[in-house]
Write a protein that binds this DNA or RNA. Structure first.
Lengths: 197, 197
DNA sequence: TAAACCTGACTGACCAATCAGTCAATACGT
DNA sequence: ACGTATTGACTGATTGGTCAGTCAGGTTTA
């Protein structure tokens, strides 16, 4: 069967959740179809039946992961500063408990590190990247228009903030330091100095 | 044999170069002892003879990789602004050709993404992380003392700059955009606004 | 001198375990 | 009854790692 829209929703949800759990538990390099299946109540063959190959399952998974990311990042508020700070918090600390957030970011970084070898991964990540950059630069532009922010270059400011967030997430999971917390307080000061007053 | 100092220098060099080439060519997830050996004029068993296990070889490799990184990043100049900009350039664009730099950053990101599952990887990366942060904050402090920079918090500024560099490197290799070039021009403006007058 | 011995470097053949993927048989839902 | 969903058993390929043995070069012995 082809991995298109013909997969039942309940199976798809089980597949995605199982893939997520297996990826968090074992890491991308040690991720196998058996380990994915073991995280669900289905067996290995069932996932082959629905997705054909491991790669197709994983491409579907990335899509699922980034789609969920999009939906839940932007906080529901009108004030540009609140919206910006809320988005930064969501991106650095996630929406669930600390462990789930750490696992989520680990999964994302593992997929990122595989992107150079897989164009489909790269396309998905690029699209997500451009989306979030538009969101942040729109917030900054809105702040400027409402005279809440100084008249900075919105694109460049967004680039630095988003790059720093990505970097902090990578450092958070690959070092023994609390890199996201460090960046949060550093960004507070940067935003104060660059955007406000 | 144990993977200590008893390994001949020429063998060690061949092992490290072969590991680097294999890692760049196949990615961490598909990295095997055979593929490493195939990148050298030695056979698989030889690397097992010198390093025992695949993991010990890779821990040695990370040490080798980060040591080389340390040695070559800081530019030889007295002027704080020149030194800071030179370091940023070196970290974003590397010292060799573009292809080698991209491969190097890919290898680093792959190892980073594996750090959550391997404490020895994490220790190495943490140490390297702290080293480079000290270098950057020292440069900023020096600039403040010489009245070339504004009186900012050196630690927090270094955190943002280094996080952004890490993030841009991750985006550079995992998207279809030129993220390092984008960040470089954004950082120009940030440095102008934050550090200079 | 030369034969015997030793050692570290290296190799190809081999192993059990595991991999992604296949397939015939079966269970299920309508 | 019929198509979809699911399974366990299976396959060929590949994995990290082992091992017996080869080889070059140095040291000891006769």
């Amino acid at each position: 069967m082809c991995p298109d829209e013909s997969i039942p929703d309940d199976v798809k949800e089980k597949a995605m959740k199982a893939t997520f759990r297996a990826l968090c538990k074992h890491g991308y390099a040690d991720l196998t179809m058996k380990k994915i299946a073991d995280e669900s109540d289905k067996c290995k063959s069932t996932f082959h039946y629905h997705y054909d190959t491991k790669e197709k399952l994983l491409v579907n998974f990335i899509e699922f992961l980034l789609e969920g990311f999009k939906d839940r990042m932007v906080p529901d508020t009108e004030d540009p500063l609140e919206k910006l700070n809320g988005l930064i918090d969501n991106m650095l600390f996630g929406l669930a408990d600390e462990e789930t957030t750490e696992s989520f970011h680990t999964a994302l970084l593992e997929i990122r590190s595989q992107a150079p070898y897989n164009e489909r991964y790269r396309e998905q990540i690029t699209e997500n990247d451009q989306y979030i950059k538009k969101v942040v630069s729109d917030i900054i532009r809105e702040g400027i228009e409402k005279n809440r922010f100084k008249d900075v270059n919105a694109e460049e400011t967004a680039t630095v903030i988003l790059s720093a967030i990505d970097g902090a997430r990578a450092r958070q999971i690959s070092t023994n330091r609390n890199a996201t917390k460090e960046l949060r307080s550093s960004l507070d000061w940067i935003i104060e100095d660059l955007l406000l007053e």
